[in-house]
Amino acid sequence: MLKKLLLCGASLLFGPVAARAQSVYSATDPLAHTFSIVARDPKTGEMAVAVQSHWFSVGTSVSWGEAGVGVVATQSFTNKSFGPRGLSLLKSGKTAQQALDELLAADEGRDVRQVAIVDAQGRVATHTGRKCIDMAGQQQGPQFSVQANMMLTATVPAAMAKAYEAGAALPLAERVLAALDAAQAAGGDIRGRQSAALLVVRGQATEGPWADRLVDLRVDDSAAPLTELRRLLQLHRAYEHMNAGDLAVEKNNMPQAIAEYQAAERMFPQNLEMQYWHAITLANKQQVPAALKLLGPIFRQDANWRTLTERLPKVGLLTVSPQELKQILAAK
């Protein structure tokens, strides 16, 4: 029933354009009326796209990016293909504007599209179709663009741009989130809020995509998606410390490992995983009494951590004497 109403509404709103419904709306191309930002950090070369909408799982439709290539936001009556096709055009040597022009030229639904692209050189291109639902608009700045449609007020793009420019000292991920917060404070989506996403890629490709997506977070359904997205970013930062701690363990740099685990633990003091590996590192550094103080409360909360501890010596992750191991496993 909802799909019939959407198609019916599209016919009324867009007349002849909507008659070619396959070009404007299909079940695989959601109506991601929303606000978003695409940006490149001139200091690091990193590129980001961030978005919030009153639509389920907006990050699977709007946000696209590739290290060393660029980022794309495709929204309003979304044409998902603009994401991968836009990146492919950039990769072939097109500028952001050339890529956008080519995408729109072949799209009969261009009047209901909203698209923004930033390429790896920081060049920006933005399109807001003349039949995007009010309030709709865009604003470009140095190496960034903000865009919005179906907003409560017309002030959203200007508020986003102002917040982004004011956050120049922040890491790129935190900076684009500040722009989203400003959009919501200015009224945001007239329908409310449901989902959000944040993607940050490297300025240059490295050994593979598994290393090139620096941040890739989505909130698919939430009453406060930006609040949850910021919490996830903070958790992501904490686990960056955990990963750095693991790397230090591999290099047998125990003081560095402890420092990294402690940094993560300070950010999320109730996280048992962070407490646990901090304790195991202490034990491996012959600081068993300090490790026991941490392990006892962990074991009381979840006995599975004790079972895991029994398995660590076999793979060399717990290098204590048999007597010390017995003492650790008896921690209460």
Rank of each mutant, 00 (worst) to 15 (best):
Q323T: 10
L294V: 01
Q256I: 14
A303T: 10
W305G: 01
L325D: 03
Q275V: 12
F299K: 03
E310C: 05
V288A: 02
Q275M: 13
L292C: 07
P297T: 11
I328H: 03
N304E: 13
F268T: 14
G316L: 02
Q262C: 07
L294E: 04
E310Y: 07
R300V: 14
A291L: 06
L325M: 09
Y261V: 01
I258D: 09
N243A: 15
P297L: 05
N253I: 00
P255N: 04
L318F: 00
E265H: 10
I328R: 03
M274W: 05
T281I: 04
A263L: 05
F299N: 06
L292F: 10
T319P: 14
R300Q: 11
L318I: 01
I258V: 14
M254L: 12
L294R: 01
Q275P: 15
Q287K: 04
V249C: 13
E265F: 15
E273S: 15
A263I: 05
L312A: 05
N253W: 00
K251E: 06
I258W: 06
A303L: 12
E250I: 00
V315H: 10
A244H: 08
V320G: 00
F268L: 07
F268P: 14
L272H: 11
I258P: 11
N271P: 13
L308S: 10
A248I: 01
E324Y: 04
